[in-house]
Design a binder for these strands. Sequence first.
DNA 1: GTCTATATTGCGATAGAC
DNA 2: GTCTATCGCAATATAGAC
Lengths: 194, 194
Amino acid sequence: MDKKDFKTKLMATATRLFAERGLHGVSIRELSTAAGVSISMISYYFEGKEGLYASVLTEQFSCFEYMDLIKNKETEPLEKIEEYIRWSIQRHRDYPYLLRFYTSELTNPTRYFGSIVQPTIDKALHILIDIVKEGINKKHFREELNPEDTALAMAGMVNYYFLSTLATEKFINHSPERDGELIRHYMDIFTKGL
Amino acid sequence: MDKKDFKTKLMATATRLFAERGLHGVSIRELSTAAGVSISMISYYFEGKEGLYASVLTEQFSCFEYMDLIKNKETEPLEKIEEYIRWSIQRHRDYPYLLRFYTSELTNPTRYFGSIVQPTIDKALHILIDIVKEGINKKHFREELNPEDTALAMAGMVNYYFLSTLATEKFINHSPERDGELIRHYMDIFTKGL
DNA sequence: GTCTATATTGCGATAGAC
DNA sequence: GTCTATCGCAATATAGAC
């Protein structure tokens, strides 16, 4: 119980600190102290600071595997889109640090962008694009719709709601109790417009 | 001509490097070398690395003043929204580094977030929110619309298109020639839905 | 104004004791 | 496996020459 695995402790602390201040904003000295572990344990378990960062990144992005389940559901396109929005919001709740790594890697890519981040985003977006295409083929959506731009628009709406939290929390309630309302609202915009 | 002001040269180099690698990802050694200026000039003109960063941040966010012009236009709400989307896209074109500072400050705020970034975003979003409210009052938009969420959704769509560039440029053409089409597409989603 | 040289601090990594 | 002590280097800032 009390005897927490040091490797796990380092991962948890690194996730929080790297998310809050970025790879270069944290020293392994501070990180190991915060984790209550000797600094040499980072090299021992992760082969240095960058290795620790790569492990955190891999762990954080692994939850995107869920997109395969959405893809293979036997439901209509519009329902799949609602399922995507619902999952995406829940993902932000379950992995509160993921968005930091996501945007940080998109704007200031590290050497791990190409191997970890890019393939994950690529795959998730293509599943979303295919859902829109399916909706157009089935005549559920307008045929003038650009599937790629539409998929980006949907992902952008949800992600930006969370990205903007720090700047908007004074006048927009971001609590999870409102998530259901948010999903309905986004779906309404997509089905009815303004 | 050739005799470029050192202060200006430092600002330009710092804008690019801070945007690409973040405040902690760049050393003033490298920065001053890249600018072709002595390292001591940074303290002389900007009172250190952080002062230089603050100057860059202020300059980058000053373009948001344009939101006041949109606010005061004598046009209908929907037209103002189109004007916002058009301006927002053009802003990304004119200030290609702004989004990096924007997202970096939202996810890993520096000490300048509260004084420079937060007030700017706050003001711009409130103008957008008021436009949506005006549309609801005039019965141009559905009255169930949540103005705050709707404003965030609009801002998020456009910003995410640019944020995702690095991960999507292989299958989505992000060139400025397509900007007109993008604006029409976003407006269509808002007026007609999917 | 602009430079070089340097003071001081903190970094990441690791050798070696236990 | 875990720690302490230390190495070598790079960071920011600045004093002082020009």
